[in-house]
Computed example of a mutant assay.
Amino acid sequence: MNFKKQLLASSFFALCGIAQATPLMPAPSVPAKSFKMIDISTGTVLAEHASEEKTEIASLTKVMTAYVTFAELRNGTLDLDDTVLISRKAWKTDGSKMFIEAGKKVKVDDLIKGMIIVSGNDASVALAEHIAGSEKRFVALMNNYAQVLGMTDTVFANATGLPTRTEQHSSARDLANLATRVFKDFPEYTHYFKEKEFTYNDITQPNRNRLLNESDSYTGMKTGYTARSGYSLMSSFQEDSREIVTIVLNSDSVADRFMAAKTLTNYGFRRFTNVQPIVKGDAITTMPVLYGDTDQVTVYAEASLTKTIPLGVEPISEEIYLVAKLGQNGENKPVLFAPVEKNYIVGTLTAYHKDEEIGSVHLITKDKVEEGNPLKKIKDWIKLKLSS
């Protein structure tokens, strides 16, 4: 896809009034009290409603329990083949179960499956006790991670999300953040969320996320329900290099939460697209060099830029343009003085969609420029004086 380019000196200022780019069709109304949807491949918010509203989140809590567990695995303090001695407390935990037995040893890998796939509260408590010594100490870890991840609306009270007299809540905003970090920080463990069933102790239970049976593009993540929280869902969807996470909270029924997530995901996938207006290593323009063994160097984009934008009436290639801004050298127009090192930053390349800035990258030199011979330096000095 070819995008228009403009070249400006360092005196470049913002273009005329920048408007917020919005899709032609607004986000649909869905049966959920709050929601948030993000394209995590670019970090773009596609839709949200009351996303900062605090609420209990039931078994969605287990996604943080999983995050802490994955961190322990990554740090080497836990192994998938480790065995966990099941306590009576874990065995007696109320609610959905993996059906582990007190006094038996169970592999960490099986407990993770039991927690994520069949939402086993017993498995969650067993993991918490094994990692931190007690569920209470594990909850402190969960809340520490929540702070590190910037989950300012969130307080955890246990490893399961079961109702308690102790304060516990989160928000669609925070859970979208958590889901994003699970996929970004621990891609090697996200396969647990898409497994459709799990058998343990000769008992086979299905994953409660029905969307996994609708399309292979749905890749997880977790359902939740208590009378206080209502029916909630964290859903992930991957297709055509896009990864969309949808958080739906406080629906009135099982059917409503899946309808809400599916409707939002379809909207996010069909009404937005990912574009890459800047590709790492693309030659953008040239820049003059004085006192060197060459008169000019080509400057390149230091990195790629990928963004999610709403689809409009006009072709995307006609709505996006690039602006290269080269820095002045003192009072001189954009120019470099030899010697010039490789990967030297000389300016910025900014992408605009409908006059709204969508991102920028550095412009750099790729080639090293050595000093020229004495005669070349004299000629360039005269050239510089005449142009002053």
Rank of each mutant, 00 (worst) to 15 (best):
D252F: 04
L85E: 12
S388P: 00
L375P: 00
G224Y: 06
Q20Y: 13
D216H: 01
I320M: 06
H191L: 00
T199C: 11
R208Y: 03
M115T: 10
I278K: 08
L336F: 08
Y231Q: 10
V139Q: 11
T166L: 02
T223H: 04
A32M: 05
A176V: 02
E129C: 01
T199A: 02
Q20N: 10
I358T: 03
A47Q: 02
E239S: 11
L375C: 00
G114C: 06
A140T: 10
E195I: 12
I320A: 10
N201A: 13
H353I: 03
L305W: 01
D110W: 03
T223C: 10
L326R: 15
M98V: 08
T77M: 11
A132Q: 11
A227Y: 10
E167H: 12
E341P: 00
L78C: 02
F99H: 14
K54T: 09
N373D: 15
A58I: 03
R257W: 07
R208I: 00
E341A: 15
K89C: 00
Y231P: 01
K184T: 08
S229M: 03
E331N: 10
S170G: 11
L15T: 01
L363P: 12
P163H: 09
I112H: 05
E197R: 15
S229H: 09
R137K: 15
G17N: 12
G220Q: 08
E331L: 09
T265L: 00
R270G: 11
G292N: 12
V299L: 03
